[in-house]
């Protein structure tokens, strides 16, 4: 519907405004939309929208965790997704003009679209449940977090993850850099996502 499209568009602008207007270098922003499962009554956070900025040293980080087999798999999935969106049959591997390697952070952002959090699970769920921001800075802290998503983020090169509860869901910010908690960005996110504009 046009309403859904309008909301989707404003979400994108807000996420972009958070990332591009921040003093720090954030790699991505995701809005996890809150809802209640009609069948079970469970609280659910699922993908609402995301903005991927990337990181300046994408190329350098590229070979961090991914093997040749990983890259083959990622490229194949991307070709299939491109085909799903465009409606055209997927090109053969050697016919694809755009066949750049898929970075770890791109891949993490992409797989995030399929994730969801039930009843306060994960860092986004915890932020929603406690109505307070969850901020994890440092690869070692992410790696040892009691949250599968945080550990996965670290494995894909993310060093900082912040989850900020807002009206209707949670805004998650991720960065390949080390960013310590600051009230400026949490305040900005809250302002952007509660203004209703």
């Amino acid at each position: 519907s046009s309403t859904a499209c309008f909301n989707q568009e404003t979400l994108q602008y807000r996420l972009q405004a958070v990332i591009e207007g921040a003093r720090e270098s954030w790699t991505y922003a995701i809005f996890w939309q809150s809802s209640v499962d009609a069948a079970t009554g469970a609280s659910l956070l699922a993908w609402g929208d995301g903005y991927y900025r990337g990181c300046d040293d994408d190329k350098r980080k590229l070979r961090g965790a991914s093997t040749a087999a990983d890259q083959e798999h990622r490229k194949r999935v991307l070709r299939e997704l491109n085909s799903l969106i465009s409606g055209a049959p997927p090109p053969a591997a050697d016919e694809d003009a755009v066949d750049e390697e898929v970075t770890d952070t791109e891949w993490f952002f992409l797989v995030s679209m399929a994730q969801s959090f039930v009843d306060g699970a994960g860092l986004p769920g915890h932020a929603l449940l406690t109505a307070s921001a969850a901020w994890v800075a440092g690869a070692d802290r992410l790696a040892s977090a009691a949250c599968e998503r945080a550990r996965q983020a670290q494995a894909f090169g993310i060093q900082t993850m912040a989850c900020i509860p807002v009206g209707g869901g949670v805004v998650e910010l991720g960065s390949t850099g080390l960013i310590y908690h600051n009230a400026e960005i949490t305040g900005k996110v809250r302002a952007l996502f509660t203004s209703g504009t």
Binding site: W47, Y52, N82, V98, L110, M113
Partner: peptide, 26 residues
């Protein structure tokens, strides 16, 4: 493709389009 929820599909389309732009301008 009907199984792909609309929000994810819109985000995915945007991500792929921007990625194509990034790659071709690099």
């Amino acid at each position: 493709s009907r199984a792909v929820p609309q929000a994810r599909k819109a985000s995915l389309a945007r991500f792929l389009e921007k990625r194509k732009e990034r790659v071709t301008s690099a």
